[in-house]
Design a protein around this nucleic acid. Structure first.
Lengths: 343, 343
DNA sequence: ATTAGCACTCGGCAATTTCGAGTGCTAATG
DNA sequence: CATTAGCACTCGAAATTGCCGAGTGCTAAT
């Protein structure tokens, strides 16, 4: 069963996949010979196709139809057959042009990125925002809103802000607030947010702070500020997927949109690419998400220096134009890395 | 042409509308007599229906089909026929239960509200966040990120935070930052954000500040922080609209989703309801948005005390269940008002 | 090993038919 | 005079049919 594919089989498989990518219709033996310059007769191609079907690379939707590539075929295609051409100057320019240079706000940049990925690829753009955890702590501030209600504001090095309304047991004066902030700012300077979390827990055990009520309070508040920070996902260009013929039935669409509304599953998926570096491709069932049946995900990580920040990519049907999408995703990741670097 | 509708005509019109609301199919004379306890023969009903059609309340999609209500009919229905029952205890409870009480963050509450409106109505939930402009200024703070890059953080009374990265011409020391913040905090205390904007402009002309470089800088920065604050819209439950038979064609769906991606148009629409108080209903063309053809919008304002904050509501097909949706929107508006009051 | 030839399959499409819900008109009715 | 029964007519939806053509697998010839 573990037979190697002959050179000819590969060519034929490639032809079928590439044809299917553009037509979205089952490909017949005839078409393979016609549209691709293979000097073979349809009959020969049919034999090869029968073999490929047996090996699980193709399926025939019904007896007298052409054949359609399986996930396995795409996997093989992406791994062995596909050669990604470098991205053209024109596309680079097009991508850059989509960024209106207004706000340098990180969130806005990422949203724009997602939207740009969608319009460049005609599929769906997706961006996972940088993990707040890996940011470097910059400053914490407390603003009194009314009575016992405080607003805690935590600023990270890259300008990301995390804020939360917290209730205190008793009213604190502004002198207290300043003292608390000063104490924390000194204590936490230069740490990453995840280190900050540890440090706070450690410090809570410390005798010095344990008996200074104000400091203890400060630690408690900062802990509250940090809890429940989940990373944001931007998905843009949902209207684009209506263009894909395979997603025209309402039932299917509904399922997909529900999946996007419930972003947590997507986060798990994206977290997997976060671990790896560079381009990652998930085809159909490889996503381990039932709603992603028939869809693929192409992602890349973006980073400052050697440090991975987040993930961005494109979601489309399994028969997406990988050759076009991969360079776009790749280049965008580099671009975003550069944009965020400056910050 | 300006004839009054007879009592009987009204009853029949009402029957047709209510039937159409649940079936989404053209209603015939037969059905009207059968499903609604009118002691009239189909023939009589037909005569009345012909009149109603002439008056523009009904249209027949084709010769031998039943009739379908027009926008005009819905308008009349909503204005004169519909009697909204008070919301039941059970629904009230159901609505409250949808709020997970975790974060008291305004944004989170509104998003949850939108999502809840959708799942309660089976249509689309929409919430326009409070106009930042009407908030009361609480405090401004500057955090130095690196070199000339500052993060300006503006906090409003209700805990809403607006932050923006700004570049300064030359590096400022932390003493400078504190002095700037103090000056602004004193200057702007107790004003609403829109007053703040005016005040800043006024103060820029003032001789005192005009020649104190630091103060001038402070004003400039705070002005930058305020520019380009647009109000947020939350739309949730997009997957729900796939259940409506009238929106099953891909082309239609695509158009609608594109409209939702481009939220600015919706904001204009919602701004109109913002001006009015209480429940507002826009039917089909009344929205003045071409993409909203065949759809209606039911909104209500939410407020603290006597002050209008924002708008929330439901978008659905024109044949939506107004009798059910209106109480839900109404009650939700009250609930949100109360929730935000506490803050 | 490759290919030409051939009988066969089956989905898609268009033409055709049937079916029934609904209509408008007219004449009978209380 | 408003109401209703009756009737011929219309027209879309759904079912039926037949045909076309792309595609297949197998066999025999090259």
């Amino acid at each position: 069963m573990k037979e190697e594919l002959s050179e000819r089989s590969k060519q034929i498989l490639e032809a079928i996949i590439e044809d299917y990518i553009v037509t979205a219709e089952p490909v017949g033996s005839r078409t393979v010979t016609r549209r691709h310059g293979l000097s073979l007769s349809p009959a020969t191609v049919r034999n090869v196709m029968a073999d490929l079907e047996e090996m699980g690379y193709l399926v025939a939707p019904h007896t007298s139809a052409g054949r359609v590539p399986t996930d396995k075929a795409y996997r093989f295609y992406v791994d062995s057959l596909l050669q990604v051409n470098r991205i053209g100057r024109a596309s680079q320019q097009a991508i850059q042009d989509r960024y209106s240079l207004t706000g340098r706000d990180v969130g806005a940049v990422l949203k724009q990125t997602s939207s740009m990925l969608s319009s460049m690829s005609h599929y769906l753009g997706i961006v996972l925002a940088p993990q707040f955890n890996t940011n470097i702590f910059r400053q914490i501030e407390f603003v009194k809103l009314s009575g016992k209600r405080l607003l805690a504001i935590l600023v990270a090095q890259n300008g990301t802000v995390q804020n939360k309304i917290v209730e205190t047991e008793d009213e604190l004066g502004s002198a207290d607030l300043i003292r608390m902030a000063n104490y924390l700012n000194e204590l936490l300077e230069g740490l990453t947010i995840s280190q900050v979390k540890q440090r706070i827990l450690a410090e809570m055990q410390n005798d010095k702070t344990r008996y200074d009520k104000l400091l203890a309070r400060a630690l408690e508040l900062s802990e509250q500020t940090l809890e429940g920070v989940s990373s944001e996902v931007f998905i843009e260009g949902q209207s684009n997927i209506f263009e894909q013929p395979e997603f025209s039935e309402a039932a299917r669409m509904k399922e997909i949109f529900r999946a996007f509304e419930e972003k947590s599953q997507l986060v798990t998926l994206l977290d997997r690419s976060l671990a790896a570096e560079g381009i990652q491709i998930f085809i159909g069932a490889e996503t381990h998400l039932s709603q992603m049946e028939g869809m693929s995900l192409v992602t890349s990580t973006y980073m400052t220096g050697k440090h991975t920040l987040g993930v961005l990519g494109v979601i489309g049907p399994t028969r997406m134009g990988y050759a076009k999408v991969i360079p776009i995703v790749d280049y965008t990741a580099q671009l975003v890395s550069k944009l965020l670097e400056q910050e």
